[in-house]
Amino acid sequence: MKEIISCIFTFLFLLTQNLLFAQSSHDQFMRSNGKIYVVIGVLISIFIGLVLFMIFMERRLKKLEKELNENG
């Protein structure tokens, strides 16, 4: 569980680093092909948001399972 979260944060960190240091080429890329990559970026960020919410729900469920294992 912890590995997955640290994996995701490392990925996001590298992604933002990449965006910060390669600002102009990133800008050029996002504006190519009629700015279609902006739409792709929006869809990916929605997907990442839904995945983070899944992780949030799984952690709550995990707590319950632990409680059941200890008491039941």
Binding site: M30, R31, V38, S45, I46, G49
Partner: peptide
Amino acid sequence: SVGTLFGILGLVTGAIWAKHT
């Protein structure tokens, strides 16, 4: 909770859209 998730995603997607328009 879900409404707040949608709102934060709305802010993020809006920011990406705003950057390029």
